[in-house]
């Protein structure tokens, strides 16, 4: 790297000062960063709550306790309650074989696990229509045996599992890779069973990373729109999740109710962020150093 050694001497006089920017520059940068975040994150959030409360608190509560809204909340909770544990088990299994063993095709497997992150949600829904729709591969068989997948809860759950598929695995793999497998190997050599080793040695080491992945997985599971929209069928009180219910209310000119349900989802997002931040501050060293999603 060529640096002009005989350039102005101001730097030499106060090298420490030169490691930071002038005060003005710092203030400007902070202002730019905050301005950007306020414009893109804070204002939309404020709008959700202000529109939701535009009709007063009574209207707000009424829109949340109306039967269709309750049904949507129930369905959303149910979907997350199925999808998140399944992806949790998968995440642990995938991390166990990828982070603890060396085998041919490992990088391919890792890439494939990442795939749902970059597939458009609409496509995630479409593939299940192609598979389970009346004219899809399994459609006629399902019809004959009266099994309902799409336009019913199983389809919604499947689409949700698809889009939240990598969350737990992506969190655990780098964490477990970093921790290495010496402790587990020692436990096995000392005679512990595989299950004991996992429960007593591995789990305590990864619990916060696990929780972190579950948190993000859950937020996405409850908020997915595109994929679920393709497979839902939009039957009121039955196959509408909260995000779909928001869209329906929006289309009924019922802005206050739409934003009321939306505010519930926004609240969920905020709780997720707070929980996440707490985890990061308290257990920073027990979470993977390279966190990304």
């Amino acid at each position: 790297m060529a640096i002009d050694a005989f350039a102005p001497d101001t730097a030499a006089a106060a090298p420490r000062v030169a490691l930071s920017e002038p005060r003005v520059v710092r203030l400007v940068l902070i202002a730019v960063a905050l301005g950007f975040l306020v414009l893109f994150l804070v204002v939309p959030l404020v709008v959700v709550f202000s529109e939701a409360l535009a009709g007063g608190v009574a209207t707000y509560l009424a829109s949340l306790t109306e039967p269709d809204a309750l049904a949507a909340i129930r369905l959303t909770l149910l979907t997350a309650a199925i999808a998140v544990p399944l992806n949790l088990v998968f995440g642990v299994a995938a991390a166990w074989c990828i982070a603890r063993f060396e085998f041919v095709g490992k990088s391919v497997l890792t890439t494939l696990i990442d795939l749902p992150f970059s597939v458009s949600p609409v496509i995630s829904g479409l593939v299940y229509v192609l598979l389970f729709g009346l004219h899809g591969w399994l459609g006629p068989w399902l019809q004959a045996h009266d099994v309902k997948i799409i336009f019913a809860v199983p389809g919604i759950v499947l689409a949700t599992i698809f889009v939240t598929f990598p969350f737990v695995a992506r969190e655990l793999i780098p964490l477990m890779q970093e921790q290495g497998s010496e402790e587990e190997e020692a436990a096995i050599v000392l005679g512990a069973s595989g299950w004991q080793t996992f429960r007593r040695v591995t789990l305590p080491k990864i619990k916060w990373g696990l929780l972190y992945g579950v948190l993000l997985c859950n937020a996405r599971a409850m908020g997915e729109f595109g994929a679920v929209s393709v497979v839902s069928g939009h039957i009121r009180g039955e196959t509408n999740t909260m995000p779909l219910h928001v869209e329906i209310l929006y289309n009924e000119y019922n802005m206050v109710a739409a934003f009321a349900v939306a505010s519930l989802l926004a609240l969920l997002a905020l709780v997720t962020l707070v929980a996440k931040a707490l985890l990061e501050w308290r257990y920073a060293d027990e979470l993977a150093a390279t966190r990304r999603h």
């Binding site: 004219h135 336009f151 009180g237």
Partner: peptide, 20 residues
């Protein structure tokens, strides 16, 4: 009576794909 509403084409598509 359960209701589902949406664009006419989208709704017909759901019926073709198997909504009961």
């Amino acid at each position: 009576i359960r209701q589902s509403h949406g664009g006419s084409g989208k709704q017909a598509r759901s019926v073709i794909d198997g909504i009961d």
